[in-house]
Amino acid sequence: MGTDYQRAREELGRRLRELRVECPDGRLTGVQLAQRLGWQQSKVSKLENGRQTPTDADLRAWAGATGQPAVSAELCARLKGFESQIRSWQRQLAAGHRPVQDTWNTLVAESRTLHMWESSTVSGMLQTADYARNIFERYAEMHRSPRDTEEAVRARMKRQEWLYRPGRQLRLLMWEGVLWARVCPRDVLAAQLDRLLGVVGMGTVHLGIVPLDAALRLPPANAFCVLDDRLAVVEDWHAELWLDDAETIALYRRVWDTFAEAAVFGAEAQQVIARVRRSIKV
């Protein structure tokens, strides 16, 4: 969990403790407040110490139980502010993958330059429909989310129209391990690699491959995307992190630049992709 997120959660916890202590009816102990709310006392403690994220309902109940219902709007606004940085997959995928793809379509449409690092799968900006279909099905199974695979695939394919608009630049770096990852049947992976071979040299795509034997100054960690130096989106198993402070965005650009030093481009990138493609017998 990001430091900024945790700090904001702790600050919200201090505000909750303040409301309990300054209750108009007199100071409440944690046990007394828990009894009023019908909660375990441990929940009160976790919320006040920033070890659990409250819901809007929790905050409204807290404000009411401490005799200060008018502050519920303030508390919910605080929660919304820091939760915008961490978007759990559980919440995002409650209605399936299509809404997430629609959100990304809007983000990308508003951007002119994308700096992306991919260490596990081919970027959605260059996926074939069959490759995307396999990825969505695997994640839907893992997260136990609604199966709307075909709608999600269509939305992802629509996003790729961005590549054909003047003035756009996709600056994509991929770890060579991505090319080898059997996250789909052999024939689907072979077609995906053919797609990558076809975009090398495309005017709006600057594709670099970091070879497996390249000397690295950093480990090939989480995938991320920096959109126009205004937002960095980092993907993890439990959530996407949306980070918009200048210092953090600058950090992710430095990471991208560091991987770029180890990458090969143009004909050399094609050679790496072609070598992997030849290994796949279909």
Rank of each mutant, 00 (worst) to 15 (best):
H97M: 15
H115N: 15
W180G: 04
D187W: 07
R133K: 13
A95I: 00
G177K: 06
C184T: 12
T128W: 03
C184S: 13
R147Y: 15
M157F: 03
Y139I: 11
A140C: 13
Y139M: 08
V178E: 07
G177E: 09
S145T: 07
A94C: 12
W162R: 07
V100I: 12
S119T: 14
R156E: 05
L114E: 02
R144D: 15
T128I: 04
D130I: 04
A181K: 10
K158F: 11
E151C: 01
R156V: 04
R156F: 07
V183F: 14
V153R: 01
P166C: 05
D187A: 11
L126H: 14
S111N: 07
W175I: 05
L179M: 10
Y131T: 04
H97P: 00
E118Y: 00
L172E: 10
E110T: 13
I135K: 03
E141L: 10
T103A: 13
E137W: 14
E176S: 13
M174E: 13
A181N: 15
Y131G: 03
R182V: 02
R171K: 12
M174D: 01
L93P: 00
S145C: 09
L93V: 03
W180L: 15
W162T: 10
R133V: 01
E151M: 10
Q127T: 04
M116E: 07
Q127I: 05
R144W: 07
L163D: 02
R138E: 15
H143C: 01
L172W: 06
S119D: 12
M116C: 11
G177S: 11
R112W: 12
D148Y: 05
E151I: 02
R165D: 03
P185T: 13
T121V: 08
Y164K: 13
V100K: 11
R182E: 10
E151H: 15
H143I: 00
L170R: 08
E137N: 15
T103E: 12
W117Q: 13
R159Y: 08
G177R: 04
C184H: 09
N105L: 08
D187H: 10
G167F: 12
M157W: 02
R98L: 09
G96N: 03
A109F: 07
E161D: 10
D148E: 04
R182P: 14
V183G: 10
L126F: 08
F136L: 01
R138N: 08
M142F: 13
N105M: 12
G177F: 09
Q169E: 12
Q92S: 08
L173R: 02
E176P: 06
R147Q: 15
L163I: 02
A94E: 09
T103H: 11
F136N: 00
P166V: 04
L172V: 06
C184G: 11
A140E: 09
S120D: 10
L93W: 02
V178W: 06
F136G: 02
